[in-house]
């Protein structure tokens, strides 16, 4: 974990309320798939935890959704400004050689799966990607996965694009039988994934105080009843480990 004054290189909308920001910071050289950073937003007290979506040299890409005043302020920040960034934080995906990997992203749970897909690809895995959104206008990152040579299966709840229904409907419709799944997305989606698959990992989201294991603001329970910190023990957990 280091603290870095990261220069904003770009901050552009991907959809109406989802933004992509590129930051110049040495944290990019340290971050692993599934890890996150804590960003100070000017005039707000707590840092905002945001997952690492992509790294290239010393450029770190994050993708965030405007949900409140803090992320709204973040979306107004211009290139050239510097932000205090703490990271890399958390335990990411334990990337290991696999023949086949199924990557499932839902909404703003999609961004960290891009770097994760790339990491598995680099180890020779055949990577399937299924992405779920509510509607066509909320879809993003199709092009980014295509640049990795992967054609993502797009699912929308209202059927306005791709497969109508959930990511599980998309997996079924495309006859993807890979049993090893890595997934990040909203809780209902992760619950459905955990109910369907036994092998793989999920990445969780939480409100956080510190982001490095101290404040116990993001603690959840495992199936054995033990307490785990989303920020430090996670955000990536083995499939079925955490009670959702």
């Amino acid at each position: 974990m280091i603290e870095s004054k990261a220069k904003i290189l770009s901050n552009t909308p991907l959809t109406q309320d989802v933004f992509k920001m590129e930051l110049e910071t040495e944290i990019a050289t340290l971050a692993k798939p599934g890890q996150f950073v804590q960003i100070t937003v000017p005039n707000f007290y707590l840092r905002r935890p945001i997952s690492v979506s992509w790294v290239e040299g010393n450029v770190l890409t994050i993708v965030y959704k405007v949900l409140g005043k803090g992320t709204d302020k973040l979306s107004s920040m211009r290139p050239g400004h510097a932000l205090s960034v703490l990271g890399p934080l958390g335990t990411g995906y334990p990337i290991e050689a696999k023949e086949e990997v199924l990557i499932v992203g839902g909404g703003v749970g999609t961004p960290p799966m891009l770097l994760t897909a790339k990491a598995y690809q680099d180890l020779g895995a055949k990577v399937h990607v299924v992405l779920g959104f509510n509607t066509k206008d909320e879809v993003f990152y199709q092009k980014e996965f295509e640049e990795l040579g992967i054609t993502p299966v797009i699912c929308t709840m209202d059927g306005s694009m791709g497969v109508q229904g959930t990511v599980l409907d998309g997996i079924k419709a495309n006859h993807i039988t890979c049993p090893f799944v890595c997934s990040c997305g909203p809780l209902p989606m992760l619950r459905a994934i955990q109910n369907t698959y036994q092998d793989g990992y999920i990445s969780l989201e939480s409100r956080m105080g510190c982001g490095f294991g101290v404040c116990l603001g993001c603690v959840m329970k495992t199936v054995e009843g033990d307490a785990v910190r989303v920020c430090e023990d996670g955000p990536v957990f083995a499939m079925g480990k955490v009670v959702l």
């Binding site: 707000f44 007290y45 707590l46 803090g70 939480s206 409100r207 956080m208 105080g209 404040c215 116990l216 603001g217 993001c218 603690v219 959840m220 329970k221 307490a227």
Partner: peptide, 10 residues
């Protein structure tokens, strides 16, 4: 174990 989430707010 402590309190139910969320436990933190700005």
């Amino acid at each position: 174990f402590g309190n139910p989430l969320p436990r933190i707010a700005e």
